[in-house]
Design a protein around this nucleic acid. Structure first.
Lengths: 210, 210
DNA sequence: TTTTGAGTTAAACGTATGTTTCAAACAGTT
DNA sequence: AACTGTTTGAAACATACGTTTAACTCAAAA
């Protein structure tokens, strides 16, 4: 091993570039150039560009997944039969995201962008991958949300959940551009924590509307 | 002119395909094949693929823009010095969208997808185009929202506005996939109008949270 | 020392893309 | 009917892409 593993150098470069320019717009040659790695290395280590995208995704999602699972487990052990509020659920998720992306803000953007693509990409090989790979966590969170919003019809709850998802995905994936606009228009800087602090009450109020 | 103008045949095909597969993933050959038009026609009539994307965008946005402007003008003439509620503002926008995309649901998706790209595309030639071209409407709507939410700090209002934008952009651009999921998981069909009917209260509750 | 096998490298392959070219077809005018 | 400017058509162009190949490196095992 040279200085840093070739595989992680590729993942790091891909993560940055995907978040910056999107997936189709980022070529393997750009990635391998930034990673200071031979072009063939991607296909050697990952098999294909598609697989690389999934690997970038997985490197974020797997620890996030475990983080949420275990913190929910701990909470349920300490406070059994408690019904979590929407705010609490969102805080669990937000805390897991923060701890996973700690020190590397672009990782959140890339994940959220991928989430957005996963949903509105017509073919959607990403959404299927996501759904099959992380189905259990998804179901668990959905069940918690259902308990927190008992007087909501299932279909409307489904939609409101995706309204929340959309808000988060859009905002967090455009975070850098939006922060730049704020700085230009209001002469103020916003930390990511502040933005999340704005976001969660918005989402909570939205899902329990009326 | 043959049956339908070549230019509009190209725009129609491009609109559908962009909404279905995204921009980078849709080739000029696919577009011209569906439009039943020669490959060179795009570059002859529009100059480049980039210009075609902007043209597709403009064909939607310009009538939408005028629709909102005139309906706001009419309302202000008939009810001067009235403060519109968030719900009213959203209804104005939604009604303009519905009337512009009437009979052609994919046009909304493509616009929303473009909006998303415009924001999280790093370089963002789209966002600049959008901002310079439709700045006045944007400012006007923002001013109305400000009047409807007088006790909100400007910065937080900015963020909440973009939370709304994100919700709408994500949901409407993924509308088809989400509707398919609903049909699969709940054995129910949702019309677009129903989804918008779910969306607006969510957004309104979100922006006036706390 | 020799062998092995994973990792790297430079080069090439095949294909798909956006764009350009230039001749042919067309429509409208004189 | 002849001319003119605009639009179409088939083909080619140049380039960029993801992927594959085959020779090479080099440390660890035999």
């Amino acid at each position: 091993m040279a200085q840093v593993d070739t595989v992680t150098r590729i993942l790091d470069a891909a993560e940055e570039l995907f978040a910056e320019h999107g997936f189709a717009e980022t070529s393997l040659r750009t990635i391998t150039a930034r990673a200071d790695v031979n072009l063939a290395a991607v296909n050697y280590h990952f098999g294909s560009k598609k697989a690389l995208i999934q690997a970038v995704f997985a490197r974020f999602l797997t620890p996030f997944y475990k983080m949420v699972e275990t913190s929910l487990d701990v909470h349920e052990k300490n406070h059994p039969d408690t019904i979590l509020s929407i705010e609490d659920i969102l805080k669990f998720v937000a805390r897991a995201m923060a701890s996973v992306t700690e020190g590397d803000r672009s990782r959140l953007a890339i994940f959220m962008r991928l989430l957005g693509l996963a949903y509105n990409q017509g073919q959607g090989h990403l959404r299927k991958y996501l759904q099959t790979e992380y189905r259990s966590l998804f179901r668990r969170v959905m069940a918690l949300i259902a308990k927190a919003t008992p007087d909501l019809q299932p279909v409307e709850r489904f939609w409101r959940f995706h309204f929340m998802l959309g808000s988060a995905a859009f905002t967090l994936s455009s975070m850098e551009n939006l922060r730049a606009i704020v700085e230009h228009d209001f002469d103020t800087k916003c930390t990511e924590e502040e933005v999340v602090g704005y976001l969660l009450p918005f989402l909570a109020a939205g899902i329990r509307a009326k």
